[in-house]
Design a protein around this nucleic acid. Structure first.
Lengths: 143, 143
DNA sequence: TAAGATTGAGATCTCAATCTTG
DNA sequence: CAAGATTGAGATCTCAATCTTA
């Protein structure tokens, strides 16, 4: 029994707080490269796809709305990391294509993130790391 | 051995993705009340403190910069959930004080969050929930 | 009309610079 | 000068409305 007042903070706020802390650490790791998590995420999806992606597809894979991608690609284009290319078969569609520079920076970002990841996860044993990933995926895969 | 290309996505991006998904779910739960996670977080810290807090203290407890709190309190004040009060003993200091309306809405928000929390965590057994919290705290408590 | 993309308004956050008070 | 708060600029995100093309 605990005599003190009941916790005012729901469990989920702890979740959000911890995740915010992790995200901040990762942003800091990417910052020296001029990258943000948002930008790296987009580059990452483009590399994974292996080909230019329509902005709608990018929005779907990054779990955000289309208008967000319009602006994100604006900034990526200003950084010369991607270019917009027209789709001749459907003139409504615009695809984002990686530049050589974008591909190279993604590789650097990957290294930086993996270093930050080792720093972060070194606290946890290998089985703990597996557990964490499994639990988070359970939360995510909810309808 | 896996013949396919190595995963392009670092483990940490999975973490960020899961975080984003959870945060979105919680935002949705608060939305009908006209609350956001940011606003609820501030109300929650004020309720926990039991007294008006200087904006600096609020910034510290919410792990963000002061200028963020200035604007957040602007919006909370516009919603009539808090008021700014002057500190007679130090005229530099401004404290945020809950209104009755702010206190009431915090209670409603708490209920909404706890419902969303049950929805989210129902997937996990009680020991799994404990594990998740423990693991996240380990990640957070890093220097 | 549907779909793809963009625009405009606004919420949330950061940083750098500034202003007042200590 | 330090500290507390604010302001201004800009990044990131959402929603509603709009424009073009299918």
């Amino acid at each position: 029994m605990n005599e003190r007042a009941a916790p005012v903070e729901p469990l989920t706020l702890e979740l959000v707080g911890a995740m915010h802390s992790v995200a901040t650490r990762l942003e800091d790791a990417l910052d020296p490269l001029g990258l943000s998590l948002a930008k790296f995420g987009a580059l990452s999806k483009l590399v994974a796809a292996g080909e230019p992606l329509p902005l709608s597809a990018l929005a779907e894979r990054l779990a955000c709305v289309r208008s967000n991608i319009t602006q994100l690609v604006d900034r990526l284009e200003a950084d010369q990391l991607v270019v917009r290319v027209q789709d001749p078969s459907d003139r409504r569609s615009v695809r984002a294509e990686l530049t050589a520079q974008g591909r190279a920076l993604h590789t650097e970002g990957l290294r930086a993130l993996e270093a930050a990841e080792r720093d972060l996860l070194d606290r946890l044993s290998a089985p703990q790391q597996d557990d964490l990933l499994r639990l988070l995926r359970l939360l995510r895969e909810r309808a």
